[in-house]
Design a protein around this nucleic acid. Sequence first.
DNA 1: CATTTTATCTCGACA
DNA 2: TGTCGAGGTAAAATG
Lengths: 283, 283
Amino acid sequence: MDCGGSIGKVNYLVNPKAEDIVELLASGIVNDSILVFFAFCRVRYDGRAKSELEPGDRIIIIKPDGSFLVHKNTKREPVNWQPPGSVVSWEVHDGKLVLKSVRKKPREILQVELIKVYHACSFQCEDYEELSLTGSEAEMAELIFENPSLIEDGFKPLFKEKQINHGIIDILGKDKSGRWVVIELKRRRADLQAVSQLKRYVECLKYEYGEGNIRGILVAPSLTSGAKKLLEEENLEFRELKPPKKERLKENKQTTLDFYGYANNLNNLSSFQIHRSDRKIKN
Amino acid sequence: MDCGGSIGKVNYLVNPKAEDIVELLASGIVNDSILVFFAFCRVRYDGRAKSELEPGDRIIIIKPDGSFLVHKNTKREPVNWQPPGSVVSWEVHDGKLVLKSVRKKPREILQVELIKVYHACSFQCEDYEELSLTGSEAEMAELIFENPSLIEDGFKPLFKEKQINHGIIDILGKDKSGRWVVIELKRRRADLQAVSQLKRYVECLKYEYGEGNIRGILVAPSLTSGAKKLLEEENLEFRELKPPKKERLKENKQTTLDFYGYANNLNNLSSFQIHRSDRKIKN
DNA sequence: CATTTTATCTCGACA
DNA sequence: TGTCGAGGTAAAATG
């Protein structure tokens, strides 16, 4: 091994041997650290499907809840993974370390053969904050309950997330002439599936209350062309409504510089953007 | 800064100051490295929705394709992210570094305020291999074309992925008495949505060919109860079929030891599993 | 490019 | 625990 360190929350190893990695792994697991490996490795998965990934450089992340991620140098998604609750273990075969993560139900196995580890870290990651999100369908529903005329004059919303035979109706209410109104909310452009869903709910209520007394309204910021067609064929209606958001992040204007511009101005500026080189990345 | 190193594919910094991070960031971006930060940070997002995450320890990953991930110590999913194609930049405000990633369409902004960086890495990640996956719906379709009796005696598959008015039919064929058969494939347990989809296709074909001449069959390893009910109500059929996989990974038996057992036997064994401590992780 | 469909989806909610 | 539906879904297939 070239070197290593253990200052504060992060322990790390540079070009470690199998036994060094095992030590980091073992102590990292017992004190609930996140483990991160930068490694040349082969990956095999078998479970709901089955996959094989030949050797290449990847980043491997093992979280204390059992989540196991293998990331390539592209994409938001891990190329292979295991969800929370999986159990990690390892084996050493003539100096080569193989990480294993097993999920019980459904039975799934992920194996990472570490051919060369460039860098390994364990991170005592303390985080007590939860994400707070706004702009959801629930908030669209709130908005409509507070302001029913967004649907139409005289509309009265009565139920939120009303369970029926074949699903859950977002909003069920009555119009001014007393007919039932089924409202399906979509926070973004509504597609065929959204219309299918609304149709299913309307049919279900027609069966209960009789053909002529049920209206269906799809509420979304916009419609796909296919959705519009099907909606009209089925005599369903559409209301345009965007999901509400509290306030926008202000976005500061900032300078964009190439690398040389940046290097020459490092001490003078406090804001940058550097462009990636143009070489194609294929993986 | 405490120290750093640049041996081979990974450069790293320990407890770096803003200007050191900026240097790593800048050079990492121009040579298409993956950047990884272990940091105490605050995260803000605004775009299709809007979110805020108060300060805590997280791992930040920036890939050369623009993918930007912020991971907490739990879950398979990043708590915040930006997809490939996003553009990263940064600002320095009195010694504090703020990472920014902007997506053009739809317009979305992610900001990470780095309050304290414990460890920073840039990784020259070379990977020329693609994942090879087996066990998909396409393979179910192949299987049925090779072996139509899996559906029923005398079934003749005619079209694969046949485009119709409101979607694409997985398999369209005829039964031995010459009636059209619409087949919808699901590689896992089929739900209400799957039945809705099949129903939509069958209705579309009934409209073309007449009421009595169309059958619909849902092919999947199993059905949800709701799906079964709707399927029966609609006079649609079900065939059990699991997606095919080539062969299973063999799974070696291995010893399970607690940490002390492991520590005492490090030199004698080549296979381990250590249990995480039982303290609850809430985030 | 926009649209549609799939996914080892993941995740949360609820029976 | 299983079932069901939503998602800042992401990513692939398709027109």
